[in-house]
Write a protein that binds this DNA or RNA. Structure first.
Length: 319
DNA sequence: CATCAGGGCCCTG
DNA sequence: CAGGGCCCTGAT
């Protein structure tokens, strides 16, 4: 596979809506690791496709200013630069205002710890809609280890190897690349029945049936409806999409079993409470912020995992 | 060795 | 609206 070297470099500054917590917003320890994104020395490395061209992006923070470096094959024009800047603002929720959440719940018995440790953390999605859909498909009905294995085998076959700023990583394949491949060839990568879903979604994007720009303008319920019309998107995937990708802080209609166990433990001290009960509880206690509340709880416990062993958490990860 | 659920969803009846 | 089936894999 050809290794694309991105050697031209420029830098932009990104303005954030305070309070903004850089590390906890741009990198999420609860997500499974892949070679699409790297977080090294407080710097995030990712790729981005704009108008058919591939760019390397680094994100870092210096004296409370967020810096993005853009790496490219040829010099970048100001229009593209602006597009990337706008896109980063959206993906990392740089203009979202969560100060009321932090003020209202800083003394809350459940959230005070997470808010103290990670206050200013926003939901974010490093990926385009298509890329994130690919991730949600990989997550379906399997374990973290296999999700990572499937992602990597897909990247090895169809992704683009990219080098910039001393790092090597993969860019997710383009929808057109998959549209040409047979379902059988995809299945040979041990992605199972997901091959069909990936082909269907790739086909929809190739034919221009999904409009990312318009989707982002929709109110929550309409966005949900539109997303559920995509083949392979059900209640679980749509909840990830509404919160992480579209940043609806109150998008909590559904909690997956593994998340329910974690949140149940963190709120009630045992894993037994069912998802529906927890959703009701969160809607009562954190109206307007129920999904963000879950996010603070889960990311906070995963962050603590790096520093100490949490047996009841390890039991649920099985990676 | 077999059986099963897993960071779901589609389809059928 | 409930329930079966689905690719594969590690756990039991």
């Amino acid at each position: 596979m050809e290794n694309i070297k991105l050697t031209k470099e420029c830098e932009i500054e990104l303005k954030t809506e305070a309070p903004f917590n850089f590390p906890d917003t741009i990198f999420k320890p609860s997500h499974y690791q892949s070679e699409i994104i790297k977080y090294v020395d407080n710097t995030l490395y990712q790729t981005m496709r704009v108008d058919g061209n591939l760019y390397g992006i680094t994100l870092s923070e210096l004296n409370d200013i967020m810096l993005a470096k853009i790496f490219s094959v040829t010099d970048i024009d100001s229009e593209t630069k602006q597009k990337i800047k706008d896109e980063l603002h959206i993906r990392y929720d740089l203009d979202g205002n969560i100060s009321n959440f932090l003020n209202d719940y800083k003394d809350d018995s459940v959230l005070s710890g997470p808010i103290e440790r990670r206050g200013g953390m926003h939901p974010s999605c490093s990926y385009s809609l298509y890329e994130f859909l690919m991730i949600t498909v990989m997550l379906q009905n399997t374990t973290v280890r296999r999700s990572a294995a499937m992602t990597n085998s897909m990247l090895e076959s169809f992704g683009n190897k990219v080098s910039f700023d001393g790092q090597d990583l993969f860019a997710v394949w383009k929808p057109e690349d998959i549209d040409k491949v047979s379902e059988e060839d995809l299945r040979n990568l041990r992605i199972g029945y997901r091959a069909k879903t990936i082909k269907r979604i790739s086909e929809a994007f190739t034919e221009g049936n999904i409009n990312e720009v318009e989707l982002r303008k929709l109110p929550k319920e309409q966005a949900k409806k539109a997303l559920l019309e995509i083949y392979g998107v059900g209640p679980q995937s749509v909840s990830y999409l509404l919160f992480e990708y579209l940043h609806f802080y109150d998008a909590l209609d559904h909690l997956s079993p593994w998340e329910s166990k974690l949140v149940s433990m963190l709120i009630f001290g045992d894993k037994s409470h069912p998802g529906e009960e927890i959703v009701e509880y969160l809607k009562q206690d954190y109206p307007g912020w129920e999904a963000l509340a879950v996010h603070y709880l889960i990311e906070d416990i995963f962050a603590q995992r790096k520093e100490k062993n949490i047996p009841w958490l390890e039991e649920e990860i099985r990676s």
